[in-house]
């Protein structure tokens, strides 16, 4: 009886191991080229789902852009993932061939996981998106304050300094520490939702503290606007609900296209205002090394 039990457990362990090794896909020569041929030469592309725009709407927009910009976007079949994590699992298990991420994020992935490499596709360089805060529509004062702080930082170059310090000049092994947010007694306090989902902009350190470019930016904004900022760690799927219910006042990395190729408000949910962009980034594609 005992032996039977042990044998069963061992067998299930082996099966689980085999399953995960298969998913890792590291040493398995996946017949990707053949797959691409089978699907009519289309490349399976993973993207992070938008805050608001539906998949159909995104498809329409892609078709439009292809028409106007002559960028062959329809060679991709796009699959949307809820978060970067899931998208990574998607490419590692072979359900997509390439993933679309921002330049800074792509560099972070390549630096931290040697399985990935860049797809050098110059045509994609035409896209760049802006990152901004999103606040509720009735919070006009807050939007004005944030806009003012961002404009000030842009003007005196401290925004560029932060970008350098936290995004472009980061060593692979030296993670910048989490920034202490200044607290002023009696000042107005706002809650900002971070997801920990988009390094190096937004991630949670090993000690459990939110860190990255976004928190550094927040500290600067807090200093300039004289507000107390409280960071709330929240699942990215619940950001919109949290904002509209008033549980948090600001959400991060709402993404806005530059406005020349895609309409600026493609992803703007109802009842939400977006601030001045604080960061601009190109789109890059990553694939697994063969």
């Amino acid at each position: 009886m005992k032996f039977k039990k042990i044998a069963k457990i061992l067998l299930s362990c082996v099966m689980a191991g085999a399953l995960f090794a298969g998913c890792g896909g590291g040493d398995k020569p996946a017949p990707k080229a053949d797959d691409a041929n089978k699907t009519g030469g289309k490349i399976q592309l993973g993207m992070i789902a938008h805050l608001n725009a539906t998949e159909q709407k995104m498809d329409e927009i892609f078709a439009q852009i292809e028409e106007s910009e002559k960028v062959p976007l329809t060679k991709y079949t796009v699959k949307f993932y809820d978060s970067l994590n899931l998208m990574q699992m998607g490419i590692e298990s072979g359900s997509v061939d390439e993933i679309s991420v921002y330049d800074s994020v792509a560099k972070y992935i390549v630096a931290n996981n040697e399985k990935y490499e860049f797809v050098n596709d110059k045509e994609l360089k035409v896209f760049n998106d802006n990152f901004c805060f999103a606040v509720r529509k009735d919070d006009a004062q807050l939007k004005a304050d944030l806009d003012k702080a961002i404009e000030e930082m842009k003007a005196d170059g401290s925004l560029d300094k932060l970008v350098k310090e936290y995004i472009t000049d980061v060593d692979k092994d030296k993670v910048p520490p989490a920034v202490e947010l200044p607290m002023t007694e009696g000042a107005q306090s706002i809650k900002v939702g971070v997801t920990g989902d988009l390094p190096p902009l937004d991630y949670v350190n090993a000690d459990g503290k939110p860190a990255g470019f976004n928190t550094a930016l927040l500290a600067e904004v807090a200093k300039r606007s004289g507000k107390n900022i409280e960071i709330v760690d929240i699942d990215s799927g619940a950001r919109a609900a949290a904002l509209s219910s008033g549980k948090i006042d600001v959400i991060f990395w709402a993404i806005v296209p530059n406005g020349d190729k895609m309409p600026r408000d493609i992803d703007k949910p109802e009842g939400v205002e977006l601030t001045t962009p604080y960061f601009k980034d190109d789109v890059e594609h990553l694939k697994l090394k063969k």
Binding site: M89, Y108, N112, G196, L198, P199, V204, D233
Partner: peptide, 18 residues
């Protein structure tokens, strides 16, 4: 949530989630 955060930070979702 902690596991997801770690997966995002280390860029190793498979191992972390396992």
């Amino acid at each position: 949530r902690v596991i997801n955060n770690i997966a995002s930070r280390t860029m190793q979702p498979m191992i972390t989630i396992t």
